[in-house]
């Protein structure tokens, strides 16, 4: 009899581990309508039904909205929010930056207040999804800033990320309200982004949905997988472990590279469409960037 106790224990552990199942309610995107607003509704419902423990207004906190341990670490990190330095630095750059014609960046993209909340958006003139950081870069390029002074993915990245952090703070508390205009190209951009979210890719054969949908709230090593809602609300995000401010485009690029594929170029149509999809899903969530992650 004595021997049976530990074996039952093992059995219990196996049963326990097996039941660490994230999602009980299934989601089969193929059965879903290609209408973006219908799709988004179903997509969000998947999370609401599977994870009733997450409050709707806390999805914008990523893992901190449902992982208690992570949340208490977060509270500690937030005692001296490291984002504040970036916001201050970003404001300084924003206020002092002059394009070659002497005009500020606001002459190109508009005033800081609420600017972040206007992005991403679909521009019916050029048929493209616009991303805030890329628009800033294009302001510089179009105004004739020399190539080596333009804020690219490498050079000037810290300045760009700081300005992005400042602009995010100027939209803090506003609600995500991404529109899909009545233009077939806009719907196509959304569906392209959706495809990127669900498509398996790379040597490791992962899709975004694998981690952030089907296995959301579970852990890979000690990393808790956040859900498919609230991916965009906190960006840019200060990463404590990297001591760096990270833009959304950079983060998406990194996630894609981690599947061991050759990622699309930064700011390419693909990444902007993916951002469009993710942000549209976030409609109704409150913008709370620049956020902090461990």
């Amino acid at each position: 009899m004595k021997k049976i106790v530990p074996t039952l224990l093992i059995a219990g552990i196996v049963a326990g581990m097996g039941s660490a199942i994230a999602a009980d309610v299934k989601f089969n995107p193929l059965n879903n309508p290609s209408n973006p607003s219908e799709f988004a509704k179903e997509f969000r419902n998947y999370f609401y039904e599977n994870f009733p423990q997450i409050k709707h207004n806390e999805y914008n906190m990523g893992v901190y909205g449902f992982d208690k341990d992570a949340y208490s670490q977060y509270k500690n990190m937030m005692e001296f929010p490291p984002q504040d330095d970036y916001i201050a630095k970003g404001k300084k750059i924003w206020d002092s930056y002059k394009l070659p014609d002497g005009k500020p960046l606001s002459s190109c993209v508009g005033d800081a207040k609420g600017l972040r909340a206007k992005y991403p958006y679909f521009n019916t003139k050029d048929g493209q999804v616009h991303n805030l950081e890329l628009d800033l870069i294009n302001c510089q390029k179009n105004a004739g800033v020399p190539e080596d002074k333009v804020w690219g993915p490498k050079q000037g990245y810290a300045d760009l990320a700081a300005v992005s952090a400042y602009l995010s703070s100027e939209s803090d508390g506003m609600t995500v309200d991404v529109k899909i205009p009545n233009d077939p190209r806009a719907t196509e951009a959304f569906n392209n982004g959706k495809g990127m979210f669900f498509r398996k890719t790379g040597q490791l054969n992962f899709s975004c949905a694998d981690c952030h949908m089907y296995h959301a709230t579970q852990r890979t090593r000690s990393e808790t997988l956040h859900t498919g809602i609230g991916n965009t609300t906190g960006f840019p995000v200060y990463r404590y472990s990297k001591q760096k401010m990270i833009t959304l485009n950079n983060r998406l690029f990194g996630c894609m590279r981690d599947t061991r594929t050759i990622p699309y170029p930064q700011y390419s149509t693909q990444f902007r469409d993916l951002e469009y999809f993710l942000a549209y899903i976030d409609n109704g969530q409150v913008i709370n960037g620049p956020a902090l992650r461990k």
């Binding site: 552990i13 196996v14 581990m17 660490a20 579970q218 852990r219 000690s222």
Partner: peptide
């Protein structure tokens, strides 16, 4: 140490 819990425990 620090295993994930995406898949079942590998035991027995």
């Amino acid at each position: 140490t620090e295993p994930g819990n995406v898949g079942p425990m590998l035991i027995a």
